[in-house]
Structures are given as C-alpha cells and as structure tokens.
Design a binder for these strands. Structure first.
Length: 439
RNA sequence: GCAGCAGUAGCUCAGUUGGUUAGAGCACUAGUUUGUGGAACUAGGGGUCGGUGGUUCGAAUCCACCCUGCUGUACCA
C-alpha cells in the first residue's frame, strides 16, 4: 500500500511562525489605519457561485481555467480569486441597508488556478479596501494616501516604494485618436502597453505591430497597428503629466494631502477589464531575490482602481466604486528581505519534571507564572534532564525552573537563565519577579 | 501553454573518461555526563541516485519518454 504524499499541491505552501509574525504585524497596522480612516470590517465566504465572481461558465465539464471550481448539485461553485467581485456582490445584495457611501475593508485568502511564479502562489492572503457609492475622486486619492500610510507603518521608506497612477481614460482617448473600435485589438494593445517596464518601448512596439518573439522562442501575436498609429501611441504615453481631468483632480488632492510618493505612469494598465477610471499600482523600488539569491521579476505588490459598473452587473443599483488591494504574502516576502524584524514572541519558561509524583508542585508554579502573565509550560513528562534542557534550548526558552529532590528539601526552586547559564535558588514567591528581570 | 536549467540522505551539495559495498557538511539518535541546553569528542541510523524503459559484461553517470521544481515568456476575468 502506498503512503500518502507529503508533497503539497503546486503553488501551495506551508508558512512558518517567522513569516506569520511579520504578517500579523502588518495586519495590525492595516487594522489601525482602517479604523482611523473610517473603513468597516467585512468578511465574505471563500466560495461564491461561479457566475457571481465573474467567470462565465461555458457548457463544459469544468469552468474556465483560473479559478478552482466544483459542481454542487446543480450549480458551479468557485473559490474567490479576489475580494472585489465578492464585495460587488455583497453591495448589490445589501444595497438598501448599507451606508452610502460604503467604505469597507477585508482580509482574506484568495485562490488562483494558474501557474505560480516567483513570490506568487495559488493561495494567498489579500487585503482589500474599497469605497463604494461615490464618484468623488477624493475617494481615489484617499486610497492611495492610505495604502502608503500602511506601507510606511510597516517599515518601508518613501524611497522603497511608489504608487503609480494612470487612468483608463488615457487609453480610451488614445483609441479614439487612432480610430480604433475593435475590442479584441484594444485588449491586445492594453496588454502590450502593460509590459513597458519589462520589455521597454522596443519590445512593446513589436507587440503593437506584427508581434514579438521572446528569448524562449515563443511568438506572441501583435495588434497589427500601422507604424503611424504606433508612433501616436508612443508619443501620447511618453507624456510626463496627465491630460485627463480625473488625474489632474487627483493630483491636486494629493497636494492637499501633502502626499508626494506617487508617479504618473500611463503604462499602468492592470489587465482587468472592469476598471473605468483611475488605476493604481504599488511597486517596490528594490530588487527582490529568491531563496537561491537570484534577482527575480517580482512585479507589483498591489493595485486597484475605479470600477464604476461592477456593482451594476448584479442588478439595477448603480454604485460607482474604487478600491485597492495588496498581496500580503508578497509584501511580507519582500519586507523580510529588506528588514530585520524583531518580532519573536516571548517563549515560555519551561518547568522541568524530575518526578511525575511532584506534578502537583509543578502545576502550582505553572499557575503562579501564568497568572502573572509569564508564558510558561511544564515539560510534558518525566524525562532525562538533558532532554528537557535540549527542548528548552530548541524552542528558545528564556529560562527553566528546576524543582527536584535537592530543591524540595529547602522548598526553593532553581531558576536557570538560559542565555547566561546562571542558576539561582529562589523562593517560590520571588520567582515571578526574578523571571521578569530575565525576560 | 512555450522555452532554458535542474532533480543524489531531512537540508546544502560532491561523486573524475561508465567500474566493486554511493560520499561530505549540517541536522537527527545514542554515549562521554543515570540533575543541566548552546561547544567538543566518539559511535550510530538514515538513499528505489525523481520515475519508467533502453544501450552495456557493468549505469547516479549514456539515450528516450514521463514526473517534479526553479527561471523566463504567455495568460491572469
């Protein structure tokens, strides 16, 4: 009989305490900022009906790739791939009850059924803040300011990240200018423009024209634009300041907020078709390495934008909205390379067991310590002292308490400081004070 | 999906032009110390050499296919 595999499915990972503590630290910053900015906390389920999260199901055995799905009785269910679509569904469902505008934030795991890349997994934690029910660009501006406050609280300096901003309106006007109506072609163009930072203008121009062969030999079909139109696009997108009203307004607001860690970048596209206005992307400005020390194409750690029609997809309510999300695990991954976090939670003092018949005494000491808010535990069984010491050392315990034959006579346990190795004989009543000196 | 690289102990890796019984460091277990961790010393356990098939007297080593991982590229509502 073959044993169960200890491998994990592609793109899924175990996450250990060191990483989780950094993540918790960031989450606590997020919550603090969210409360300060007046966002309310929401949780929606992991599964939604597949059509609710934006996947249209063809008459096939399985829904399209990209999401994890299964068929429940008659309907297809899918694990959510982001938190924005569930929000739109929630707003449409509860439209009459919720405040307008509705500001909500959410932390939740999302799943994507696609090939994982460096720092990208098929299961990851996302943070998402949205502002539903207002067209005001003050909402968009505030989201950028807010995200930057979270990043800086979490340890990034202004020179280490930047919020890039563009607007769907820029490309729309561009399409008018070159008289383009073909939706498929528009998509191809947007995808091409999205790659400027990686491929540079030369690569992008190939993609706008006939196509591009990458170094792996794979050929990507282009948008087949004329040389003249490609030139128009290049000229428009090389402009250093925006000409659309929405961005002009947002930039004015940034000034009022005294926020300046942003960059106008018309190549920010974000692929998503539902964006209708401003688009944001949060980028790190330092190199990220993998476990082998190679510098990798890390991409952005988050982004968002205005999506004025998404809620309307679910019904008759009209709720313009704007939102931003951060991939928390990616942020943690990057942050841990940049900074030493000293977030080790204080480990328990270990009470060694010399004789299981003395358990009553050990538990007395244990209770005393725990009541005084000292993390403590009893080694679970009678064992060689060496074993118990090794255990305490392994978990980085600050101290052990020895209470055996020798100590029982005087009634005074020995407290051993595991950093210095120093041992002291101490009255039980004084243990708490002595331990507090150590930790 | 396409392409490049890789897969040898729990981890990091060595293994010569194909040649007996496949190694090292770290980790692990036991002991030196039956009441003392982190250091040292001694001993020990642990491998379908990613898998399957082929070439060969003989394969970790060569060939084919497959699987897995990494990196790039494509896609990402």
């Amino acid at each position: 009989m073959s044993k169960p595999s200890k491998d994990l499915p592609l793109g899924f990972v175990d996450r250990q305490e060191k990483e989780l503590l950094v993540r918790d630290f960031i989450i606590s910053n997020i919550k603090e900022v969210m409360i300060r900015y007046g966002f309310q906390y929401l949780e929606t389920p992991s599964f939604e009906y597949s059509d609710s999260i934006g996947k249209y199901l063809p008459d096939k055995e399985r829904p399209d790739e990209g999401v994890f799905s299964f068929k429940d009785e008659k309907k297809w269910l899918s694990l959510r791939y982001d938190l924005t679509a569930p929000l739109a569904r929630y707003v449409a469902k509860n439209f009459l009850e919720i405040p307008k505008p509705f500001k909500r934030y959410q932390l939740g795991t999302v799943w994507r059924n696609e090939k994982p890349g460096p720092g990208r997994f098929r299961e990851f934690l996302q943070f998402d803040a949205d502002y539903v029910g207002t067209k005001s660009l003050q909402a968009d501006a505030e989201l950028c300011v807010m995200i930057s406050e979270i990043l800086e609280k979490s340890g990034l300096s202004k020179s280490e990240y930047v919020v890039k901003i563009s607007s769907r309106k820029i490309t729309e006007e561009l399409f008018k200018k070159i008289n383009l109506n073909n939706n498929q072609q528009k998509l191809t163009i947007l995808r091409a423009l999205d790659k400027i930072d990686r491929l540079g203008w030369s690569g992008v121009k190939e993609l706008l024209g006939e196509g591009r062969k990458d170094k792996s030999g794979d050929f990507t079909k282009g948008a087949n634009l004329s040389t003249k139109n490609i030139e128009i696009i290049e000229n428009e997108l090389k402009k250093k300041s925006p000409e659309t009203d929405d961005l002009k307004d947002i930039f004015k607001l940034f000034k009022d907020y005294d926020f300046n860690n942003f960059e106008f970048d018309p190549s920010v596209i974000r692929g998503l078709e539902y964006y209708t206005g401003a688009i944001f992307e949060v980028n790190l400005k330092f190199d990220i390495k993998n476990s082998k020390g190679q510098i990798i194409q890390f991409g952005s750690i988050g982004g968002g934008g205005r999506y004025d029609n998404l809620v309307n997809n679910f019904g008759n309510y009209n709720a313009p909205a704007t939102g931003i999300s951060i991939g928390l695990d990616r942020l943690v991954y990057a942050l841990m390379q940049k900074k030493e976090f000293n977030l080790n939670q204080s480990k328990p003092v270990v009470i060694c067991v010399f004789d299981k018949n003395l358990m009553r005494e050990y538990i007395k000491i244990l209770s005393l310590l725990r009541k005084s808010a000292i993390n403590a535990e009893i080694y679970p069984e009678e064992n060689k002292l060496k074993k118990q010491m090794e255990y305490a050392d392994k978990i980085k315990s600050p101290a052990v308490i020895l209470y055996g034959e020798n100590e029982i006579k005087s009634g005074k346990p020995t407290l051993k400081n595991l950093n210095t190795g120093e041992e002291k004989s101490i009255e039980i009543e004084e243990l708490v004070n002595e331990i507090k000196k150590i930790i």
